[in-house]
């Protein structure tokens, strides 16, 4: 039962409510669904919609995205054109007009597609809370969450160089489906071989994971069919797949190499 809905007009005001134990809400796509099904314990809701944490700011090659920025905002941002195709694999327009960057960090896989992208991009998360503002690598927030009373105010990422961003999401149907296997990657090559690779996987573990085994195998080798098959097989060591309504753990493990290869071969 919801006792109050707060719509603070600043981060400081939001932090006060959060410190008092309220539940922070981005676009409401997760929290309001719980309110509607009656599965939320008695609490206050704290909306970040008007707290001044929306918007996309570009500073050279660094982009800072406010936590209450919606996926639709990202789709409309020319600076983030490289992410548009990935955003369009997430849910549907009426959801993308609500769902936020911040909220997406806290949903379990196979949801949380944007978090997978942020992991591949090596993003930094800005956090407000009773202990004051702090920054953390996105993998820390993805594994450990944030402390009681804390909430995300922004994410910051570096724009990948042209031709280094890869994204492919295997879905159960062509639009509006959670991930069976999602691959987001920033891969640099020189003289036809990989010099660096950050590969994030979604849908194959409770949280987004880095395919470190694949990254290791690919470094110094070309992005070719057989190499990628090998890398995909190696990546099986990095996953902890689950059964759900979309696909079984067996299926996800079985097709991971196929989708890793398809992601990086384009």
């Amino acid at each position: 039962m919801i006792t109050a809905v707060r719509v603070p007009d600043s981060v400081a005001a939001a932090a006060t409510y959060a410190a008092a134990g309220g539940r922070v809400m981005g676009g409401g796509t997760i929290v309001m669904a719980q309110v509607n099904s009656g599965s939320l314990a008695e609490t206050e809701l704290i909306s970040l919609r008007k707290a001044g944490v929306s918007g996309i700011r570009v500073d050279g090659r660094v982009v800072r995205i406010g936590a209450a920025t919606t996926f639709a905002d990202i789709e409309r941002s020319p600076e983030l054109a490289f992410l548009h195709a990935a955003m369009r694999t997430i849910a549907s327009p009426p959801i993308r007009n609500l769902a936020t960057v911040g909220g997406n960090l806290f949903v379990p896989q196979p949801y949380g597609d944007f978090a997978v992208c942020l992991l591949a991009l090596g993003a930094t998360v800005e956090i407000a809370g009773p202990g004051g503002p702090r920054r953390a690598p996105v993998e820390d927030v993805l594994t450990a969450g944030v402390a009681q009373g804390e909430f995300v105010t922004a994410v910051a990422l570096s724009l990948p160089a042209a031709g280094t961003w890869f994204h492919h999401k295997a879905m159960r149907r062509k639009l509006n489906s959670a991930a069976i296997v999602a691959v987001a990657a920033v891969v640099d090559t020189a003289d036809g071989v990989v010099t660096s690779a950050r590969i994030a996987l979604g849908g194959v573990a409770p949280r987004p994971v880095r395919a470190v085994s694949a990254e290791r195998l690919l470094t110094g080798r070309p992005l070719e069919h057989d190499v990628l098959n090998e890398a995909g097989r190696a990546a099986r060591a990095d996953i902890a797949p689950f059964d759900d309504a979309y696909a079984s753990a067996w299926y996800r493990r079985r097709v991971l190499p196929v989708h890793l290869r398809r992601a990086l071969l384009g």
């Binding site: 676009g27 309001m32 007009n97």
Partner: peptide, 23 residues
């Protein structure tokens, strides 16, 4: 009530949203 069927779609500030998910 989960934002997954779309029968509640309305426009808020000209944008389509699932009205069941908007507080």
């Amino acid at each position: 009530g989960q934002g997954t069927c779309g029968t509640c779609t309305v426009l808020v500030d000209d944008r389509p949203v699932m009205s069941c998910l908007v507080a």
